[in-house]
Design a protein around this nucleic acid. Structure first.
Lengths: 328, 328
DNA sequence: TTATGCTGTGCATCCGGATGCATACCGTTG
DNA sequence: CAACGGTATGCATCCGGATGCACAGCATAA
């Protein structure tokens, strides 16, 4: 399999009768080249169709301009939106996005060596988790890493996430204010930090408001089907409101409650979700939920990649409850 | 910014007192190395934590193991599923996925030089389009390219797509068989090949069945909001059935028809979509639609990348109508 | 005028593997 | 035993840019 020989910096150099290093320096904004020569080089490059080879550059600089995004479990639409926005923002910031799938709830430690092989500059972990040991090792190698919408407790790894605890606590308070006394919680997968924080916040809020948790149901994944399934168990506890750990669970739950169980929302039971995905605003659902400011989160993530310090300070981005029709 | 020095093949060679080329060959399954030495090398590599550097390899082989996926407009959930499955399949096939966003309906010609810089082996175009000139040039450079769910007319570029024409024609026939005589079509964006084919097939089917098209509405994008908006114009033509160019349009349309217009589906009007995205099966919608066999499409795409010939033969994968509740 | 400093350029080498070619070594076969 | 064929190995070089170092050229300061 032969491949067309590309135009190289040496071709340009030969063409102009200068050295290859001068051509190389011309493409480095900080390179020392006389303005006149730089112009000649750029012109020749344009004419001959020369573009610096990113692979060769990467080999000698040990940097690639590539950011790896670890993402899995795209049955949760929230992550489709995240991926879309992250990729757009990285593009603007001049990075390429290498997509890495990881089974949700599993760690990515095993895949990191593969990323090293590609001189990936930075890593955004938006699903799965990463052991603190590996994360530290990665940083020591002066590569960037950001955890998106998740945290790990035992290491100093930069992460961007919202105030899941506070948001869930606010939900509990809001439910109490509106007279709900018997509430149920449909939990996300146990190993996710989002579920831990939301559950803790919700319980704290209930405690403070004097409401009682009459039911708690576990789910195996953040998915529509699991929400549907969990709603059956949740409604059996006769709650007057159900808080789902995220929107896709809530949507599945609503379809069980309204369709299969024949209940009316919010007359018979109120429903609240978390994330504010696009579908939560669809007229068929109009789900009351907690909005994660995705654009802001993405912005902070990119910013964190570009400087270095950026550790925990971007956690607990404030969130906001979006009142729609599923709550009385 | 210093980076830890990685273990190189020369380190292994020095450690074992052999030549660097032998180490290199040991990692080539077809390389000539005695079994004994190969074992020693692998063992030493394991012990010292050596992994061949993909960048260096790519520099000399001019191949990278990276496949670029061009994708945009992720407000259509169909493409989230596509991306998820493509990435999974590429992973299995031993490729990495580089994600490229492209504004829907625009061509990617301008971005290709950037991909060349990365020695990307293959290109999957799953949104946007590509000029035939550029596509040919890319292939001449012995790189692979596959168009996913789209075709271009004037060049011999491999593409994988379903029988959009036949599927839409079948919908027309089915509607006629069930007694619908006044039907409306909500079109996708004009420049998309999927819309052109579906529209042509639908019209052909109507023609043959003797039904009449009482309304036709254009949309600017495949999105929920556009479907919602278009439904208003479509219902004004008093159809007894509306065929939407894809599911996300149909879902938006249903919410207009049932919510805003207060109609009952399918009593007052039948609705049919195209794609069979996950949400079409949600109890709130139970949309009758045309299923694109996504797994099969992905499989064929990967297969096409792996061999070379693979041109038009994988078009017109047969599709199947999924009968749910939105049709009388 | 000589010493000092800065800019622009080229040379040589490095980044880490892949690979064509020459050679040394082994076992066959006549 | 000589000639032959195949396998295993090493050497040298290449892939395409980046960069430390030396030096030339010119300007400014002493």
């Amino acid at each position: 399999m032969k491949r067309a020989l590309p135009v190289t910096s040496r071709d340009i150099a030969r063409f102009l009768g200068v050295s290859q290093s001068m051509v190389s320096r011309a493409f480095d904004p900080a390179g020392k080249v006389s303005p006149a020569n730089r112009a000649r080089i750029m012109e020749a490059a344009e004419k001959l169709g020369y573009r610096p080879n990113a692979i060769a550059r990467s080999l000698s600089t040990r940097r690639s301009g590539i950011v790896a995004i670890v993402m899995g479990g795209m049955e949760n639409p929230f992550y489709s939106e995240v991926l879309d926005k992250l990729a757009a923002a990285l593009d603007l910031a001049g990075f390429r996005s290498l997509l890495f799938r990881a089974p949700p709830g599993q760690d990515v430690d095993g895949q990191l060596p593969a990323l090293r092989q590609y001189n990936v500059d930075a890593l955004i972990v938006a699903s799965a988790s990463i052991s603190s040991r590996i994360a530290e090792e990665w940083r020591r190698d002066s590569r960037r890493i950001v955890l998106f919408n998740r945290t790990i407790s035992d290491a100093d790894v930069p992460s961007v996430s919202c105030d899941n605890f506070g948001g869930a606590r606010d939900v509990a308070n809001m439910l109490a204010d509106r007279g709900h006394r018997r509430v149920a919680y449909v939990a996300g997968p146990r190993q996710t930090s989002t579920n831990r924080e939301r559950e803790a916040g919700f319980l704290a809020g209930l405690m403070g408001a004097g409401s009682s948790l009459v039911g708690r149901v576990d789910t195996a994944s953040y998915s529509f089907a699991e929400g549907f399934r969990a709603a059956e168990a949740a409604i059996a506890t006769k709650p007057d409101a159900i808080f789902f750990a995220n929107d896709i669970l809530a949507l599945g739950g609503m379809d069980y409650l309204r369709g299969t169980a024949g209940l009316s929302i919010p007359r018979d039971v109120s429903v609240v979700g978390f994330d504010d995905i696009a579908m939560a605003a669809w007229p068929s659902y109009l789900l009351t939920t907690v909005r994660q400011p995705l654009d802001r989160m993405v912005e902070l993530t990119i910013a964190s990649l570009e400087r270095d310090s950026a550790t925990k300070e971007m956690n607990n981005i404030p969130i906001e409850i979006v009142l729609r029709n599923t709550i009385s």
